[in-house]
Design a protein around this nucleic acid. Sequence first.
DNA 1: TTGACATATCGGGAAATGTCGATATAATGA
DNA 2: TCATTATATCGACATTTCCCGATATGTCAA
Lengths: 103, 103
Amino acid sequence: MKPISPIDVFKALSNEARLQILEWLKDPAAHFGPQGGVDLIEIGVCVSQITAKLNMTQSTTSQYLSVLQRAGLVHATRLGKWTYYKRDETALSQIAAYIQKDL
Amino acid sequence: MKPISPIDVFKALSNEARLQILEWLKDPAAHFGPQGGVDLIEIGVCVSQITAKLNMTQSTTSQYLSVLQRAGLVHATRLGKWTYYKRDETALSQIAAYIQKDL
DNA sequence: TTGACATATCGGGAAATGTCGATATAATGA
DNA sequence: TCATTATATCGACATTTCCCGATATGTCAA
């Protein structure tokens, strides 16, 4: 577990599209269609589906997911051709706790 | 009460110096000297004291305090020549709540 | 009023970020 | 092996942010 940098987290959260992605990923079943046999909740949502909902290019979506990942807010799992992204609830809790306690 | 924009709050928090200021203001008595008759806790800390601790110019300090204020994170009180800044604990709680509940 | 001090604002150059299209890489199946 | 599909990365340009010095504004004291 690398320690999380609040600054990096806040930077990652300072963008409408990235915040949107995190909100969608909070309840994937409510926002994304099924993906042949891969559990949205357990594994995550693939980049194509996120790209389709965001009104941006695949390139941008992929980069934003990287930013979220570097901040520790999501976790990626590669299965075959697809990469599935899922929220890291622990990191989200940690940052809320940081604001409440340390900040 | 204008509603707070999480994005603006996160942008305000995306900077080391501004985060530092907020941390100092959490316990002003621990970080700043007395200021002739003005209560650090009740009223806040004046810009000069913050400038002195921050390793930046008065201009930058003033602008950073404005950013924090526009985000709703601090509140300013002018008394004579001085402007005293104090944290808005409600806003801080709100943003922590936002992360926990909505995000 | 004038001078001195505290703070705010303006203008700017350098660095970071937003976002794209083009291309590279990885994995699959024919 | 090759074509196809999913994702990642690169290069670029426009916009924003960082942080400064210079200057303006506000306030008090003499």
